[in-house]
């Protein structure tokens, strides 16, 4: 198995000079290619901070984060942007598609930043929209899509650059049950069929049920790290 994320002794402290708050405290985390992992924990446990550190959006005060063999803590801000573009896909809680672009253009945007050739872009877009089952909404603006559909486009955008892994911060938080289930079906399918690595921060039981590995953070530290052969969702499906 190929290690995609290798975080060693990672800490992030806020207000270090006044009242230090350890948002992430001495965390060790290894993620293999193809993992479907949920990062859970109560509010303020450090899930989003850890996700930001792994995603290169923030710098740790201590430790190293090696992604695909590169220690991203040593990269400059500009190098980090380029690294994120080529290696990490992001899915945000509130979709965050560019409102003036169509669904297709939102996905294409990432590939344009990567300077991907037009034909390759077209092929990739077709394939992604087939995977997210939104081929009929390709030329529609985000405002004309439901929340679930927008989040599916956001997943397609995250995958457009062929990243090493996808970081999803509470991706189902703003979705109704049906949309959330649909989104999770697609993500699970992508994980199984294309071996795409997903790391979620979530409170959502539906996401936790689908995860093969659940890491619980409490006060910035890993309190529990459980891997499953079958997900709860699969078990429930078999029982049903």
């Amino acid at each position: 198995m190929q290690t995609v994320i290798d975080a060693h002794n990672v800490s992030k402290v806020y207000n270090p000079k006044t009242i230090p708050v350890y948002a992430v405290n001495n965390v060790h985390l290894h993620l293999q290619r193809g993992e479907f992992t949920a990062l859970v924990g109560p509010s303020g446990s450090g899930k989003t901070t850890l996700l930001n550190l792994i995603g290169g959006l923030d710098k740790p005060d201590n430790g190293s984060i090696i992604i695909n063999g590169v220690d991203i803590t040593g990269l400059s801000a500009n190098e980090l942007i380029d690294f994120r573009l080529r290696n990490i896909g992001f899915v945000f809680q509130s979709f965050n598609l560019i409102p003036v672009l169509t669904a297709k253009e939102n996905v294409e945007f990432i590939m344009q930043l990567q300077k991907t050739r037009r034909q390759e872009r077209e092929n990739r877009i077709k394939s992604l929209f087939r995977q997210i089952e939104l081929e009929d909404k390709i030329n529609v603006r985000p405002s004309q899509l439901s929340g679930g559909q927008q989040q599916r486009v956001a997943v397609a955008r995250a995958l457009a650059s062929r990243p090493q892994f996808v970081l999803a911060d509470e991706p189902t938080a703003n979705l109704d049950s049906k949309s959330a289930a649909n989104l999770l079906d697609i993500m699970t399918k992508l994980n199984k069929e294309e071996n795409i690595t997903f790391l979620f921060s979530t409170h959502d039981q539906r996401v936790i049920e689908r995860a093969r590995r659940v890491i619980t953070l409490v006060d910035g530290q890993i309190a529990n790290d459980t891997a499953r052969v079958s997900t709860l969702h699969e078990v429930a499906g078999q029982a049903g």
Binding site: I81, R84, L85, F90, N96, I98, L113, Q114, A158
Partner: peptide, 16 residues
């Protein structure tokens, strides 16, 4: 502001 942060997060260079 949020959108700009998001664009930089997903890989848009600041000069762009």
């Amino acid at each position: 502001k949020f959108e700009m942060g998001m664009l930089v997060a997903i890989g848009m260079k600041k000069h762009k």
